[in-house]
Structure formats: structure tokens, C-alpha cells
Amino acid sequence: MLLTGDLGYTVLEPFAQQFPQRFYNVGVAEQNMVGVATGLAEAGYIPFVYSIATFASLRAYEFIRNGPMWQRLRVRIVGIGGGFEYGTLGLTHYALEDVGLFRLQPEMTVLVPVDGGQVATMLRKTWDKPGPIYYRLSKRDLPLIEELAGKFTLGKAEMLRRGKDILGITMGTMARQTLAMADRLAASGISVGVMAVASLAPAPLGQLKRELEKVGIAFTLEAHYKIGGLGTLVAEIVADNDLPCLLWRCGVEDHRGIHLGDEPYLLKQHQLTEARMIKKLVTMVKEGKKRW
């Protein structure tokens, strides 16, 4: 079943038309939407609830926690537009903590696909899994990433590129930028591996540990606060396993004092551009060589 909090205009109509009995626009009431989904899931249905990522996650957070999370029910929370995708719509629409919040909930499956191909595979593989799932989807229609070829395995990360000097770990739409950075660094003789983590929970702990052991420098890149998301996950792995690699976490630090603009503008304001990151990584490699 599909429930929407009055969002998805021009997106959800095909489903609504094809399955009118299974589509409910519950109105602008996210708490009720998740509560209703909890009741439906207890009755054996698998409801997908849809809203902009901030509303789907934050507004209904306690309902998700006390409902499908603690009661282990198959409710799927679909949050659209991670990070700064809503650009000039402003702060209320920036999902910068959703992944962190759901990572905190022990029964939650947290998935952040890289592209549309991966979304399709992910849905096929997870739609009827026990317990709740959070899907953080991009609202942009971007070209597919060839290296990924739509692959997805729950609890695993996808190695998009092998590299021996640096490991770039990324999630969601930031995978594109990470690959572009790897290309540019390769031209300067620095070999960068790129790993996309779509399964934030369950997390690919062993796989990340093994890959982190192979490199001296790793960085994470995500459209999320630096706290709580992918960077924190990787830092936990580094700390828990006493790994010697240098880790540079790139994410959103604080949004105070920054004006509005489109997504590239906002990423630039937060120092998350290719150019700035490449510069820092080149320095890290030089300093790293001195250090080891």
C-alpha cells in the first residue's frame, strides 16, 4: 500500500491510478500517517509512507520509533530529497540528520541508494523484509552510474572503483562527485578507491574494516551532517578496530549564517566541492608520506 502526506504531485499518480484501492492521500498529517501504517502492518499489509525526507523522518519520528521500530512491523518510510536537494525551499526542507536519527534505532533498516537503478534492485530485495525500513531517495533524475550497474546487497557496500592510496566512502548522490574526484586525482598520480554505502543499517562493518585496513587515508562524503551519518559510521569502525588510517569526514558542519541557493551553491558554501576536497586530499597524501 502507498500512503502519502499530501506530497508526490506528478509522481505518485501512476500508482494511484493503477491501484486506487491501495493508495491513500492521508492529508498533511505525518504522525497519523505512520500510526495508520503501523495498524495496517499489524494486520499484515506492507504500507509505504511517502513524504519529503524531513517530514517523513522528523515529524513522525516518535511514531516510527514506538510503532514499527519497537513493534517490528513492516512499515516503509520513504523520504524524498536528501541533503540540500530542495535548494531554495530552505532550511525546513533540508534533510541533514535523517540518516543519523534512523541509525540510532536498533531495528531500523536504513537505505540510501546511489541512483535509480539501485533503487529498483533495492526495492525488489527489501520490500517484504521484516521490520521497518527507511529509504532516503533523491528527487533528481540523474544518469545511472555505470560502475554500479544497479547492484545492491543488504548489509554490503559496492566498490565502484579500486584504488591503493586513498579510499573514498560515500553515500547517495554524492557518489558521483566522489567518482569525479577519483578521476581527477588519478590524473595527478593518486589512486583513489570509491566505495558507495547504500546499506547504512545493517552496515557493512566487516567489509568496511577490511577496505580501511588497506589504505593510509580514507575520507567520507555525504549530504548529511557530519555527525550521525556515514562519516560517523566509518569513524566508529576505525575506533572500534584500532585502525591506523587517517580519516577525513566531509559533511555539513553547521548551517548558520549561510544563505539560500541551489544544491551546488549550498554544497560549495559547506566546502564540499571537488576542487576544495582534492586540494586537501593532495596535502594529506603528501603529509601522510612524511608520517608513515
Binding site: A37, T38, E42
Partner: peptide, 11 residues
């Protein structure tokens, strides 16, 4: 009540 409404709809 919200969970109940879902349960009622499910029924």
C-alpha cells in the same frame, strides 16, 4: 488512535 485507525482500515 492512529494505530487503531490503521487496524480498522486493515480490517
Amino acid at each position: 488512535l492512529a494505530m487503531g485507525a490503521g487496524a480498522a482500515l486493515g480490517a
